[in-house]
Each structure stands twice: as C-alpha cells, then as structure tokens.
Nucleic acid binder design. Structure first.
Length: 476
RNA sequence: CGGGGCGUGGCGCAGCCCGGUUAGCGCGCCUGCUUUGGGAGCAGGAAGUCGGAAGUUCAAAUCUUCUCGCCCCGACCA
C-alpha cells in the first residue's frame, strides 16, 4: 500500500475513495455498486446509530422491524411513489426453485409494507399517533454508485408515523428534520441548512420534503437527511382510516424520515484533509489513541506502567481510547496511520515523558502538538474533546459562510457555483425553469430555507418580485 | 445507457507496439538479528495456470475475435 492519499486539490473524487479505503472504512465487494463496511467504518455507524436512536426515543418513537421483501403490487398502489422508484427496483422473480406467482421487490424504502400493516393496527384516534422507526438495509439499483454516498445496498433508519390530523403530521415532520439538524451540527460538527425541497426535488409520494443540506470540502452540496410530510397519500393508497372523536371515518395523516450511511460520506467530505479523516470527538470510534515509544523491554515496561495510570483515568472518565501496542511498527508509521483514521487526539509517550510526568498531545483537527503534565491532561481531557468538537463545527461553519454568495442574476449564479459554492437568491420561477437551470448549469435548488428574511426581492431568473429565497448549488 | 480507463503474486505497476527458454519491479507478507520521539535497516524466504473463452502459430501475458468484470466522468438518485 502506497503512502498517503491523492491530494484534494489534484482530484477530489480520488481523494475521497482513497480515504475510504486507507482509513479502512469500507472496501469494494464482488458485486457492482455494493461495499463492505469494515470494522472501523461500522464502529462509526454504530456511534451514529446510538446517538440518533437515543434522540428518536427521547422524542417518543419506538423501534420495530418490517420485512425486506415486499409484494410488487404494494409499490404500485401509490402512483407517484412507483413512478419514482420503478427504475431502481431489484425484484425477486424466482425462489425455492420456482417462479413466484407475484414477484417480490427488495425494499427501496418501506412506506408500502408499513402502511399495509398500519391498516391492520389503526382503527381509532386512540391508536394515534403511531410513532415507529426501523433500522434496516435497503436496495436501490442506482446507475452510478460511490462508496457511502450512493451504494446499491445501504443501511439507514426510516421513521414512519401516523397521525390524526394534518397539523400534527406536519409538526412531526418538521420536528424530525430538526432532530437531524441537531445531530449533524452537535455530533458530526457539520453545519446544515434546513429547508423545504422544491416540487422537482421532493420525495416520490410526499406532499412536502424537508432536508438538511451540508457543504462538502469541495463546496458542493450533500443532502444529508430528509423528512417528508406525506399527508393522506399513503393512507389513501392503503386504505388506512380511523374513527375520530366525532365518530367520523377519516384517512390517517403521515410522515416519514430517514438518514443513511451516506452520513459517513458526509463526515469524510466535511472534515477530511490530505492526511485523511478528521473525526469529531462525539462520534469518533476512538477519541484518543496512545502510541507508546520505547527501545527495549525495560523501557517498554516503564512506559506501559505509566500509560496504565493514564488509561485508568480515561476509563473512569468514559473516554474512548485505543492503545496501539503493535510491535515492529515505528512511531512515525503509527502517527500517520492514526491521522489517516482521523482520531481526534494522539498521545505520544516515551521514557522522557515518564521521567517528567508529561504527555505529548497531538490534535488532529489543527495539528497542534503540546506537551503538558499527565495530571493536567487528565484533568482537562473531557473539556479538550468538547473544545475540538466545537472548534470543528465553527471551522466548517466559517468555511460555508465564506462560500455562500448572494446573487441577483443568472450570470452571477453561474460564477458563484461553477467550481462549487452555494448561492442564495430570490426565486419565483416554475418547475420547468428550475429544470432548465439544472440542464444548463448542473445547479439545483437545494432547498427553500425554513428561515426566510421576510424581505421582498427580484427573482434572479425571471425578474419577478417575490419573498421566497432559495439556496442553489451543484450537488452530489 | 453514453464517454473514458483498467484487469499480470495480497496491493500498486512494468512487460504487450515488434510473439521465443526460469514473467520482472516496488510495497506488503513470513523467519532471524539490529531498530523504535514523523511512514526503520540488513540477510534469507513464500507467493502469479498474466480476468475468461475461442482462434492464429512450432511457440501467446504479447496478435485476432468474442465475452465477463471493475473503476472514473455524465444523465437518475439518500
């Protein structure tokens, strides 16, 4: 394996795949478009899962599991839904050595199977709201795949909720996009813009789609999570009704929301540099890695004994650490290796530190190396990790602000987004005009931010007066 | 599906144009000794039916035809 990765400036896409493989997050599988998530990458996913799962439960949701195989007919019940997903379905036609009576679709998302079940479970307003989440794998046969960002099979969570009225379903949908925002910003240190998708970009079968949009290191946008207000679309398709308090039959209102292993791609491209990954402490598999340095067995035993006093302290403080005891690898090799893997803090500990009661601390996010006493380090480690977490977020937020331009005409849009970069503008165009812009420039309206200035201005494309502001960018 | 690239020990590549004896190189791996504060050194060693099939030829990694697969760029999408 060669040293290092392709520099971002040379080829960002190559840099990305290099990092994925050299940080041992994932590897290609024998099946096109599929990947193997390796232990280090999976540990990252487990941490993402754990935090999100906590948040879902705190907001009143419970987990369940629905099957992966769905009768083909189910997909066809919601017209827009099937139209949106038909091209990317994987369908099982044979099983048990026989051709199936009705083909089974491998879920591309679970609205249909879940609403088929909700029909059985929901009768009265007393059964509502129904707030279910599931952690699952899904398959979408995409034409072009990229590790984590778009793989044929991927892991995600999908929440599917049922409500007695539109307001409550809408409120749920908005609540969850804000849960995603909170997770992205507080845990992934990734600033996002929360907004609504345009008609062109919304989910197949939704009335409204809300999104969190993040800026990657190459200044392109990545849709990092979505939450949909589904109205009564799926209730009508699956005939899910309930009796309200006035004893009237009514269709159930719905929301669905999800984030996927794409978040790992987002993490890589939000923070990574030419030395590899940079992980935010709150979700890093290891928050601290310790590299012992010694020449002989006597020194080794002295160093290791000293390290044990530190690891005991880290354990008691609940800090996730890893002691790199690999023999025959030089410290320099280990430094580079853990930098590639993005561990927030590295301790270098040798005889000279033991003698002085010191530790050498290296910060991955800003490459600062400081020497301090062991006691000072142990006393401040938790605070230091939080400092890093915060500083990574502020850093990325500043980067994003530097790369958002306010634009007032079409030429300015092209200039602002040609080599990445977000544009903010007034918009009063039609769906067709939006598509035309995409065709000509590859720029799309990423979202209509929920936070609007309220001011009125001139649409950059049509020249009409409007109060609607949008964010545009080239996206993944 | 359109465009580009690539299939040769685990990984990265050379060799192919111009066919010819034991298919090389770097990294990694194994053994031993010496090393260890920014990708260690020396010595010895294991490992490849050259993506697959058919053909041309006395002879194919190399030439011809077909085929399979993967990666990158686009359209589609979380």
């Amino acid at each position: 394996m060669s040293k290092g990765v392709t520099p971002q400036s040379e080829n960002y896409a190559k840099w990305y795949t290099d990092v994925v493989q050299k940080a041992e997050l994932a590897d290609y599988s024998p099946v096109k478009g599929c990947m193997v998530i390796r232990p280090y990458g999976y540990a990252l996913w487990e941490n993402i899962q754990a935090e999100l799962d906590k948040m879902f439960k705190e907001t009143g949701h419970v987990n369940a599991y629905f099957p992966m195989l769905i009768p083909e007919g189910f997909l066809k019940k919601e017209a827009e839904h099937i139209e949106g997903f038909a091209p990317e379905l994987a369908i099982v036609t044979h099983a048990g050595g026989k051709k199936l009576e009705e083909p089974l679709v491998i879920r591309p998302t679970s609205e249909t199977i879940i609403w088929a079940m909700y029909k059985k479970w929901i009768n009265s307003y007393r059964d509502l709201p129904l707030l279910i989440n599931q952690w699952a794998n899904i398959v979408r046969w995409e034409m072009r795949t990229r590790m984590f960002l778009r793989t044929t099979e991927f892991l995600w969570q999908e929440g599917h909720t049922a409500h007695a009225n539109a307001e409550e379903a809408m409120e749920e949908s908005l609540k969850m996009v804000h849960v995603y925002q909170n997770f992205a910003e507080q845990y992934m240190a990734m600033p996002v813009i929360v907004g609504k998708k345009t008609e062109n970009e919304k989910f197949a079968g939704a009335i409204d789609t809300f999104t969190i949009e993040a800026m990657m290191g190459d200044k392109r946008a990545l849709q990092s999570g979505t939450s949909h207000y589904l109205g009564q679309n799926f209730a009508k398709a699956f005939d899910v009704t309930f009796q309200n308090e006035s004893n009237e039959k009514e269709y159930v209102y719905a929301s669905s929301w999800g984030v996927s292993t794409r978040l790992i791609g987002a993490l890589i491209m939000t923070h990574g540099d030419d030395k590899g990954l940079i992980l935010p402490p709150r979700i890093a598999p290891y928050q601290v890695v310790i590299v012992p340095i010694y020449r002989d067995n006597e020194a080794k035993s002295t160093v290791m004994t000293y390290i044990e006093t530190i690891t005991n302290e880290l354990k008691s403080q609940g800090v996730r650490f890893h002691l790199d005891t690999r023999e025959a690898l030089s410290p320099g090799y280990k430094f580079n290796d853990w930098e590639m893997k993005g561990v927030p803090l590295r301790l270098e500990i040798g005889l000279r530190d033991v003698e002085k009661g010191n530790v050498v601390v290296f910060r991955r996010d800003n490459a600062e190396k400081i020497i301090e006493t062991k006691d000072a380090f142990c006393a401040s480690i938790t605070r230091l990790l939080e400092t890093i977490q915060k500083s990574m977020f502020e850093n990325r937020k500043a980067f994003r602000e530097e790369n958002i331009s306010n634009i007032s005409n079409y030429d300015e849009l092209k200039i602002a987004t040609e080599f990445g970069g977000f544009a903010r503008a007034f918009w009063a165009g039609t769906d067709e005009e939006e598509k035309q812009i995409q065709k000509e420039t590859k720029v799309t309206i990423r979202c209509i931010p929920l936070e609007q200035s309220g001011k009125s201005g001139t649409c950059f494309y049509t020249g009409k007066q409007t109060t609607k502001q949008v964010v545009l960018a080239k996206a993944y």
